[in-house]
Computed example of a mutant assay.
Amino acid sequence: MSVQIRVLERDRTFTPLGIRFWDAALDTPVTDRLQVHAWLRDSAYPPVPAVRSPSGVYAFHRLPGQASAEKPAGDDARPETDGPAGEFVIAVDDPGGRYMGAAFSVPLPLGYRGEFLSGGPQPGKAYLFPAVSRPVPPGVAAIRADLADPDTGAPAAYAVLSATVGGITRTAVADEAGRAVVLVPFPTPERLRQGSPPADTRAATWPVSLRARWEPAALRYPFPAREGMNPAWAARPSLKSILDEQRTALVWTDEGQVPAVEWTETLVHGQELRLRTTLAGGGSAPTLWVSAGASPP
């Protein structure tokens, strides 16, 4: 006996926004539980929390203004390109304290299917940057600095510090107190790569090339201070303004010398590197001095 199945109704659901976060230090997906919210910019709607999928993607449902995209009318609909336009601001918080909080904007429709930044003309990744409280993973070097303005002593909040070791570049974002930690994998000592007999790797050293960017006037704050929102979000600059819109800073590695836009330190295997400004009278300052938005000499 054959059975005929007749489809009475078809329910098609589309998720207009899903985000997978990546660890900026290890370049691997973030597996820690995060709190992620989306807010329709310049609206009175409350923020919408994301739901974490088993694969680690944070998906948003019932976003304001996106009902027609989430329930497309027909099988030939293309909500990823033809859905309603809207700009959403994303807030990311890590209850575990391993990653810095982040804010960034996402315009919908994305224009492609899949996770945010996985398609389009310039695919990328949604990176989260390490907080200074994050434990340092094995095999990873920690380069720490408390960044400050040499004229006022104020913290260089949200400055960007980049380090290149053995051809690998990693970036850190300073927190509101100017504290930054760059986590970058220790290179394999040359003797081990050449197949030499076992060696004491504690003696291995590498040059570290460093640069900083800082320009408070370039920072943009996408979240307003208002009732119903986490007050910490209003003080959080957008990641785009932090990473892409701050100019190169002049860094005072030595009070008695000309500041530099790039300088070199030495990394010792298995040891943290702490960056400080050397004072003219000898000794070191507790901070590394950076001048905001300086033009390179």
Results as ranks from 00 to 15, higher is better:
A38P: 07
A38R: 09
A38K: 09
W39C: 07
W39D: 06
R41P: 07
R41G: 13
D42S: 14
D42Y: 01
A44N: 08
Y45R: 04
P46E: 10
P47Q: 00
A50Y: 12
A50E: 13
A50N: 09
V51S: 11
R52M: 14
R52I: 14
S53K: 08
P54R: 08
S55A: 14
G56K: 05
G56M: 10
G56H: 08
V57C: 05
V57W: 00
A59F: 11
A59W: 12
A59Q: 15
A59L: 15
A59R: 12
F60K: 06
F60E: 05
H61I: 07
H61N: 02
R62A: 15
L63C: 03
L63D: 01
L63Y: 05
L63V: 01
L63P: 03
L63T: 01
G65P: 04
Q66I: 04
Q66A: 04
Q66M: 10
A67F: 10
S68H: 04
A69V: 09
K71C: 13
G74Q: 12
D75H: 13
A77D: 15
A77F: 07
P79N: 14
P79W: 10
E80K: 08
E80V: 09
G83R: 03
P84I: 08
G86N: 06
F88I: 05
F88E: 00
V89Y: 02
A91D: 00
A91V: 00
D93A: 12
D93E: 13
D93M: 01
G96M: 00
G97Y: 06
G97K: 08
G97A: 11
R98S: 10
Y99H: 04
Y99W: 12
M100E: 13
G101D: 05
A103D: 04
F104L: 02
F104M: 02
S105A: 15
S105L: 14
S105K: 02
S105I: 10
P107Q: 02
L110H: 08
G111T: 14
F116I: 01
